[in-house]
Write a protein that binds this DNA or RNA. Structure first.
Length: 279
DNA sequence: AACATGGTCAACCGCAGTCGC
DNA sequence: TGCGACTGCGGTTGACCATGT
């Protein structure tokens, strides 16, 4: 009923994109835009499904994409945002101009997660790991009961992973102030801290710099309330989320690729891609 | 030099919400 | 109003590359 059936998957190509496919897609999208992803591959002459085209465009071909590893500032911002938003990568990516949710997700899983664990911080809850996993940081012994309760709530992997569920579904795109962590403040600790990051019920948002890593490791028995300190030291500002990151990261916008010296086509070997077509 | 292991990341899969008929 | 297509999202996979043995 209603609409035409979804793209039939028979005969559609899968796997890595070739430079020729990229060129076709980019040429088409730049000249026509995309009214409907389902039609894009057909109109562009691609044997791909619309979903694949959309993914390729948003994750790789978009002209405003940044390339290369995340900077320390971006990494720290990702950690901060993850502490507030959980695994909502698209929301996190929206705060990092030029970065995609896929890229951030990959970076989180491959880099940041490991670093946090190394620092004795649970990458899910952004709190110090339990003593069993982090014998040098017996923090739970010094925690106030409300904090322990809060951790229990956050520790549920299914809830964290499926934060899109009804419980978290109440928020919308403008939910910066109504985050899981901040919403939990009335229940307990950390509510008096000045910055949203550190106010997240004691949730720490450590940077991944070695300096803060050592700082965190150097305070194994510290009071939980002291945990944000290394973060402040690293950022040299209090309240990272109050900062205008869009401004800080300016130069990543649609017109800024040249400003930041990014060659949009440098991933194409040789002259596999016609820059003139793009421009 | 050859093989094994681990790390990285692009791409796919499946689900949920939204929207159109 | 209900059904089904479409879109967007998060999780997972698998190929490729680097490093270690």
């Amino acid at each position: 009923m209603g609409r035409q059936p979804c793209c039939e998957k028979v005969g559609l190509k899968k796997g890595p994109w070739t430079a020729e496919e990229d060129q076709k897609l980019v040429t088409f999208l730049l000249s026509h835009g995309h009214c409907c992803w389902r039609l894009v591959p057909k109109l562009a002459g691609l044997l791909r499904c619309g979903k694949s085209c959309r993914l390729r465009w948003t994750n790789y071909l978009r002209p405003d994409l940044k390339r290369g590893l995340l900077s320390e500032e971006e990494e720290a911002l990702v950690i901060d945002l993850h502490a507030q938003l959980g695994n909502r990568w698209s929301k996190i990516a929206a705060r990092l101009p030029g970065r995609t949710d896929n890229e951030i997700k990959n970076h989180w899983n491959t880099h940041i997660k490991k670093k946090l664990k190394k620092m004795g911080i649970d990458p899910v809850t952004h709190r110090p790991l339990a003593p069993a996993a982090q014998p040098l940081a017996p923090l739970t012994q010094q925690r106030d009961p409300p904090q322990a309760k809060e951790e229990e709530r956050c520790d549920e992997p299914s809830k964290q992973a499926s934060s899109q569920g009804p419980a978290a579904g109440a928020d919308d795109d403008e939910d910066e102030e109504e985050t899981p962590a901040s919403a939990a403040q009335p229940h307990g600790a950390g509510a008096t801290t000045s910055s949203p990051a550190s106010a997240a019920a004691g949730a720490v948002s450590p940077s991944c710099s070695s300096s803060s890593a050592s700082a965190s490791a150097a305070t194994p028995g510290a009071d939980v309330a002291a945990w944000p300190d290394p973060i402040d030291l690293f950022f040299e500002v209090d309240g990272i989320m109050d900062m205008d990151w869009a401004g800080i990261l300016s130069g990543c916008g649609d017109d800024a690729a040249a400003d930041i010296g990014v060659d949009l086509f440098d991933h194409y070997p040789g002259d596999g891609f016609d820059e003139q077509v793009w421009m």
